[in-house]
Simulated scan of single mutants.
Amino acid sequence: MRLVRTVRSDKPFASMSEFDRVFMELGEALDRLDRARYVIIADMRAAPGRNDPEFEAGILRMRPRWLGGFRKVGVLVQTTVGMMQIQRYARHDGIKRLVTTDEEEIHRYFSQAD
């Protein structure tokens, strides 16, 4: 299985310009892949909670650049609140993804036929 894993650290972004820079660099790295041939795990378990309007606008802008085009997307979260936030994002951006606290569930999802 061609698997990409992104892991969010527990360090908050110092500014939205840092956020933009990090996500642009991430997008550029992921663009070097043939995304349609890969699955991606976005491990968000350590991410500091944040849902202020500035962050919400930034993540709305960056989600397609980060998760778009992959064969399947799995998101690991730590809490029910985190799961609800990611599910809300999925309803808005139309990128299908499995959101769970269980990494084995993601691997089962990835192994199912498309």
Results as ranks from 00 to 15, higher is better:
L67C: 02
K72T: 09
P48G: 06
N51L: 10
L98N: 05
K96G: 14
I59V: 14
N51M: 14
E104P: 11
V39W: 02
I95Y: 03
M16V: 12
A90E: 11
Y109S: 10
T80W: 11
F55K: 10
V22Q: 14
L98M: 15
R35A: 00
M1I: 08
V99K: 04
S9M: 05
E25H: 07
R63F: 07
K11F: 06
E56D: 13
G74T: 05
D31K: 02
K72A: 12
L26P: 03
I95P: 04
I41V: 15
G69F: 00
R61G: 02
M84A: 12
F70Q: 00
L3P: 02
E28L: 06
A14Y: 04
F19E: 02
K96E: 15
D10M: 06
A57V: 09
G82R: 02
K72I: 08
R91T: 11
P53E: 11
Y89I: 13
D20L: 08
P64I: 00
D114K: 06
F70N: 00
L60F: 13
A14K: 14
Q112K: 14
P53N: 10
D52G: 15
I41H: 05
R63Q: 05
E104H: 15
G82N: 07
R61Q: 09
P64F: 00
R61L: 09
Y38Q: 01
R35V: 01
G94R: 08
H107P: 13
V99A: 09
K72L: 08
E103F: 07
V4L: 12
P53Q: 11
W66C: 02
P53D: 13
D102Q: 13
Q85I: 13
W66Y: 10
K96V: 13
E103R: 08
S15Y: 11
E28Y: 06
Y38L: 02
V4D: 05
D31G: 04
A47K: 09
V99P: 06
L30F: 01
S111F: 04
L76M: 12
Y89K: 11
R71W: 02
V39K: 03
L60D: 15
L3S: 03
D102C: 13
D114H: 05
L60C: 13
F23D: 07
G69W: 00
E105L: 15
D93Y: 03
S15F: 08
I86M: 14
R61F: 09
L33F: 09
T6N: 09
P53I: 10
A113I: 05
R8E: 07
F13G: 05
L98D: 03
P64R: 00
M1E: 08
M62N: 12
R37I: 00
S17I: 12
R71L: 04
A46L: 15
P64H: 00
M24T: 11
A57F: 05
R50T: 12
G68Q: 00
F19H: 11
I41W: 03
L26T: 11
M44Y: 09
D20F: 11
I59E: 10
R71K: 06
